[in-house]
Every structure is written in structure tokens, then in C-alpha cells.
């Protein structure tokens, strides 16, 4: 019996990425003439990038270098899309990133946004974020690591894989640690499936530097090293305002100087965690606020329920502890 004229499965290119690349040209409209002009501003308006960037600007305080880099990435993806219309094929830009910075500078928040943004910009297909730590990638015994890591990578395909505290993957003191194996698999998949997923490494600046120094191959495959600067007091104040507004509270006029003094004192104490410290301060202020209202024994109005007063902050230990010396007890938040 003769074989019917079917295309055999085997004759296809082995890699799905190659297959996709090959199949793309007939799918789109024919390329534009070489002397045609495209309106970048119109394309920008059409893609909704503007909205994404404005949202980012209003929701997240400060982070000037971070926002600048994100705007650059958005511009690159936009221009790449226009280049494709002329039939100028560039390779997909690798968008693996590393976020470094002090605690509480917004690394995780931006990563969450990044997944959604890359989806809206048309770079990633699904726009979901898979957040993992060492536990999810590194196995307990020989042969356990590879399936675990591959599983996490497969779940992240079409979206973003966010590896928090990535420096834990590599333990220099133990050369039989399975973390090295996880890194090797990560490297391989980051290369092979660069258009299927974006990997974001995050961690504290000094330890991430050591991590990248010990894994030069990894460092060179991460195109975007973004450093998150510490917040200034003004930015922390703005963050505080945003946070209380979101929780349905507000600061009394007289609270603002007290909060500023609180933040400037707290930032000089050990274990200061930027925005996270602001959140903790507000959480404790809410406790004192509730307690104050209850103990006053008076009927309360809507305004009373919303307003955080100076005394809610002034009783904090931050105002009694020495500013630059070691605190009497463990500083909380």
C-alpha cells in the first residue's frame, strides 16, 4: 500500500521556536514597501503602552531609573513591531532581568507589574507570574532537582518566572549543593525558550553581586540589570499617603511633620526596610488609633474613624530609642 500524501510528523523542524518563526511570515500582512512611513506615535497610542506607563507612574512612587528602563523596553518592543511590518526580522530581544536593591524597594511589586505589562505590550503570551524561591527549584536528593526546576519553568512559559532571593540558589561553600544543577537548567531553558518566558532574578544588591560573580554565565545572559534605589524621605511620605488612602484612612494635618520625623529617625536605625517599614509603621499606628478611640469612651464620628493623629505615632519606640546607636531592643520593621 502506498503511503498517502500526508506530511509526516518527523519532517518538521525539531524546535518549536524555529517552527513558530518559520510559520510567522505567511500569517501576517505582506511587508510594507521600503519607502513607506509608519507613524510611531499612532502605533504607541494603539498599543496601550501609554496607559501602562502612566499607571506605573501614578501607582509607584519614585523608582526613576526603574521606570526609565521600563519605558525603554516598551519603546524597543514597539519599534520591533514596526520593523516586523517592513519585514526586518530581528531576533526576539532577550528580556531576562535582575532586580537588585535594599529590602522594601519594590522589587516584587514591579515584577508583578512587569508580567502584566509584557503581556499588554505583546511580548509574552499569557502574562501570568510564577513566583518561586529556592525551595521550588532545588531538590532534596540526586535526580530530584531537574524535574522540579523544569516543572517550574514549564508552568511559567508564556509568562514571567520570578525567582525571589535568587542568591540562595548558589551556595559557594558546598560544591555538592544541587543549586548549581538548577542554575544550569535555568541557563539552558533561558537560551532555548527565550521567546517563551522571561526570567526575573531578584535579591539584595550585595548578595546578588556575589551570586552573579560566582555564575558569570548567568550574568551575561541577563540583559537587564535594574538597580532599585533607596527611597528618599519625601518618597516615603508619598508612599505613606498612598497606603493610608488605600486603607480608607487619612493623616491629620498635624501628623505629617511627626511622620516625617518618624521616618527620618527610623531610616537611620538598623534594619530599615524602606516601604515595608512605612507599612509596618502604619499598621502599628492603626493599632494605637483603634485603642485610643476605644479608651476615650466617647462617641466617634466618621472623621474620627479615619484620621490618624500625631499621638498614634509619637508613642512609638522609634522616638525614644537613640537614633544612631544600637537600639535597646530588636527594632521591629
Amino acid at each position: 500500500m502506498t503511503r498517502p500524501q500526508h506530511q509526516p510528523f518527523r519532517a518538521q523542524p525539531a524546535s518549536s521556536a524555529a517552527a513558530r518563526a518559520e510559520a510567522q511570515p505567511p500569517a501576517g500582512p505582506p511587508p510594507l514597501a521600503p519607502d513607506a512611513k509608519v507613524d510611531l506615535q499612532a502605533a504607541r497610542a494603539e498599543s496601550g503602552v501609554e496607559k501602562v506607563l502612566t499607571e506605573l507612574d501614578t501607582d509607584l512612587v519614585g523608582m526613576v531609573p526603574v521606570k526609565a528602563r521600563i519605558a525603554e523596553i516598551a519603546a524597543l518592543l514597539l519599534v520591533d513591531g514596526q520593523r516586523a511590518r517592513f519585514g526586518l526580522s530581528g531576533s526576539t530581544p532577550g528580556l531576562h532581568m535582575s532586580f537588585t536593591g535594599s529590602p522594601g524597594t519594590g522589587k516584587t511589586t514591579v515584577a508583578l507589574r512587569m508580567a502584566e505589562m509584557l503581556h499588554r505590550l505583546g511580548y509574552s503570551r499569557r502574562g501570568h507570574l510564577v513566583s518561586v524561591t529556592r525551595d521550588d527549584l532545588v531538590g532534596q536528593y540526586v535526580g530530584h532537582t531537574a524535574p522540579k526546576t523544569k516543572d517550574a519553568l514549564k508552568r511559567a512559559m508564556g509568562g514571567v518566572l520570578f525567582i525571589d532571593e535568587a542568591y540562595y540558589l548558589f551556595r559557594a561553600e558546598n560544591e555538592r549543593d544541587y543549586g548549581q544543577e538548577a542554575i544550569e537548567i535555568l541557563l539552558q531553558v533561558m537560551e532555548e525558550h527565550r521567546d517563551d518566558l522571561v526570567v526575573i532574578f531578584a535579591g539584595y544588591a550585595d548578595r546578588m553581586d556575589q551570586f552573579f560573580a560566582a555564575n558569570p554565565g548567568l550574568s551575561s545572559r541577563v540583559a537587564h540589570h535594574i538597580d532599585f534605589p533607596d527611597y528618599s524621605i519625601d518618597e516615603l511620605m508619598a508612599i505613606g499617603q498612598l497606603m493610608v488612602a488605600r486603607e480608607g484612612y487619612r493623616f491629620a494635618e498635624s501628623t505629617l511633620p511627626v511622620l516625617r520625623e518618624y521616618l527620618s529617625r527610623r531610616s537611620r536605625q538598623p534594619r530599615f526596610a524602606n516601604a515595608r517599614s512605612v507599612r509596618n509603621a502604619l499598621e502599628r499606628a492603626r493599632l494605637r488609633h483603634a485603642n485610643r478611640l476605644l479608651e476615650s469612651g466617647l462617641p466617634v464620628s466618621r472623621d474620627d474613624l479615619m484620621e490618624l493623629r500625631p499621638e498614634d505615632f509619637l508613642s512609638s519606640r522609634v522616638f525614644t530609642d537613640p537614633v544612631d546607636g544600637t537600639p535597646a531592643g530588636p527594632a521591629t520593621g
Binding site: 499569557r126 519553568l153 512559559m157 509568562g159 517563551d196 518566558l197
Partner: peptide, 18 residues
Amino acid sequence: LFDLADAAGIVAEVVACR
């Protein structure tokens, strides 16, 4: 293959199996 969002991971397994 549980908990996947995108087909790329599965097609990669098919290619590996072939």
C-alpha cells in the same frame, strides 16, 4: 503536565519524546 498556562511547555515535551 498539571498547572500549565501556556502550550509551549507541552510541545517541548512532545518534541523531546519524539
